[in-house]
């Protein structure tokens, strides 16, 4: 008994002392999870299937922006306007690559099955196959090792938050993440394009009777989700470098975030991502670093078992 008590005293002590740095780090990762989670949640909203290959869209964005940065950045680290333009270029490059891969994925691995009304198990298996194919092909063509990305800016500490240093990279991730998440929310919430997405999510059959082009809408959903995922791949690559298997763990965490926020729910995915980032970061105070992923998987299992509809409830635009 005493030792359990002692455990919590010690570890909460660590948490209290390191609260702000852990929070900053957690939020920074959380934005990346949120951006990837959006892709899962959108595809789930319209197709009611988990896009297992989303991790490879993230990876494609990482590689595309990696090559772009290497081509654009010379030996010395740029600054000022050049940095801003490079970051925008990286986001666009990663995003477009992600969107393109998502489109190809939908066309090759999903659409033939949809045409045939294949059972759900077939989609899962096809997606797992596509995922394995994609990351191993990337490994074959680009090497199977981790490489750090050319940095478009100098990653210095720009200010301190209650004693926690906040670095340039964290700020950029938060900024890009916020802008993209809000833009997407607007696009889905109040444009004609978004309306068709919501209509298909609510009731595909009725939507198609009302003249919504289902195939096109599904492609749009993959493209939007793919863009977010690809851009997240760039931001992640800036911090952790790129690798052909880089998608696996972040994507699994992002999926956890999507479930946590209520799969199919856009804002839920964003909140779930941030929350998961922070929870993961805080758990460093309690467990050995090697067991960090265990905490996240455990959380995923717990959410699925006890509240499978997540915090904000399920489904894109689905009321009951």
């Amino acid at each position: 008994m005493a030792s359990i008590f002692g455990f919590f005293v010690t570890h909460f002590g660590i948490l209290r002392k390191e609260f702000w740095p852990l929070l900053v780090g957690g939020l920074s990762n959380g934005f990346i999870y949120a951006m990837v989670a959006i892709g899962y949640t959108m595809v789930y909203g319209v197709l009611r299937l988990i896009n297992f290959a989303h991790s490879e869209i993230f990876m494609s964005g990482g590689f595309a922006s990696f090559f772009l940065m290497r081509a654009l950045i010379g030996s010395s680290a740029p600054g000022g306007v050049a940095s801003v333009l490079l970051v925008i270029g990286g986001v666009l490059g990663g995003g477009l690559a992600g969107a393109f891969m998502a489109m190809v994925l939908e066309r090759v691995a999903y659409r033939p099955l949809r045409r045939r009304h294949a059972p759900a198990l077939a989609y899962l298996i096809s997606a797992i196959g596509a995922s394995y194919f994609m990351f191993n092909l990337a490994g074959k063509e680009f090497g199977r090792y981790n490489t750090s990305m050319a940095q478009p800016f100098v990653n210095h500490t720009i200010f301190t938050l209650f004693g926690a240093p906040v670095q340039m990279l964290s700020m950029i991730i938060a900024l890009v993440g916020t802008v993209m998440l809000i833009t997407l929310d607007r696009v889905v919430g109040s444009t004609k394009l978004g309306r068709s997405v919501r209509a298909v999510a609510q009731d595909a059959e009725t939507a198609s009777l009302m003249g919504v082009n289902i195939d096109r809408t599904i492609v749009i959903v993959f493209v939007l989700g793919g863009f977010m995922g690809g851009a997240a791949g760039f931001l992640y690559g800036l911090g952790f470098g790129i690798n052909y298997t880089m998608g696996f763990t972040p994507a699994l965490k992002a999926f956890t975030a999507a479930v946590l926020g209520g799969i199919g729910n856009l804002r839920g995915a964003a909140i779930g991502g941030l929350l998961l980032g922070v929870v993961e970061s805080f758990s460093i105070a309690f467990v050995n670093g090697a067991y960090l992923d265990v905490v996240v998987f455990g959380l995923l299992i717990a959410v699925l078992l006890f509240r499978p509809t997540g915090i904000l409830g399920e489904r894109l635009g689905r009321s009951a």
Partner: peptide, 18 residues
Amino acid sequence: QSQDLYMYLGAILVAMMI
């Protein structure tokens, strides 16, 4: 190369499903 194996296996899964 032996690491390429999983690329082929992944392709088999997709091809079989289609």
